[in-house]
């Protein structure tokens, strides 16, 4: 499948999909979308890149092992729930802060970091599965 066309279009498509996945992730709280679907899109992006340029290229590009990314995501998710212990409220209570960055009020919340955790888990895990399966094919 290492066709020239695929190799040519793969980088922009991958980049586009990654950007789109972040967009889907962030808008999820108010519109259809969210961490899971975003993560799936991102994982597909990796898979497409992998088909085009080979798995080792993807592994090289993302630097971390996909499963480590998944572990990081789960850690973020779990900590988003646990952090509320410091606020004196129960597990998984949504905590919101609105810091002002460059004059823009940016809402940050544990529920958003939780969704980001979901994103990373799905990205890492599904990406890992896809890469592992592709790797077999090139054996």
């Amino acid at each position: 499948m290492n066709t020239l066309i695929l190799r040519t279009v793969a980088p922009p498509i991958t980049a586009l999909m990654l950007v789109f996945s972040v967009f889907v992730l962030l808008r999820g709280h108010n519109e259809p979308g969210g961490g899971f679907i975003g993560g799936l899109i991102a994982a597909s992006a990796l898979a497409i890149y992998g088909i085009a340029y080979g798995v080792s290229a993807v592994r090289h590009a993302i630097r971390f092992h996909p499963m480590a990314i998944a572990g990081f995501g789960l850690l973020v998710g779990a900590l988003s729930g646990v952090v509320s212990i410091f606020a004196g409220v129960p597990f998984m209570t949504g905590l919101w802060i609105y810091p002002s960055i460059f004059g823009v009020e940016v809402p940050l919340a544990t529920v958003i970091s939780f969704d980001i955790g979901v994103y990373f888990v799905v990205l890492g895990s599904v990406g890992s599965i896809a890469l592992a399966l592709e790797e077999r094919e090139t054996d």
């Binding site: 999820g28 709280h29 108010n30 519109e31 259809p32 979308g33 969210g34 961490g35 996909p66 499963m67 998944a70 572990g71 995501g73 789960l74 998710g77 779990a78 729930g81 597990f91 998984m92 949504g94 919101w96 809402p107 919340a109 529920v111 958003i112 939780f114 969704d115 955790g117 979901v118 888990v121 799905v122 890492g124 895990s125 599904v126 890992s128 599965i129």
Partner: peptide, 30 residues
């Protein structure tokens, strides 16, 4: 603070389910 009720349920009202769910996803990967 979320207009998408489904997503709010997933990450807030019933976030613990989702925590379990992503644990499942991660373990599946491994």
């Amino acid at each position: 603070h979320g207009a998408n009720v489904v997503n709010v349920i997933l990450v807030d009202f019933r976030g613990t389910d989702t925590l379990g769910e992503i644990a499942v996803v991660m373990i599946t990967g491994l």
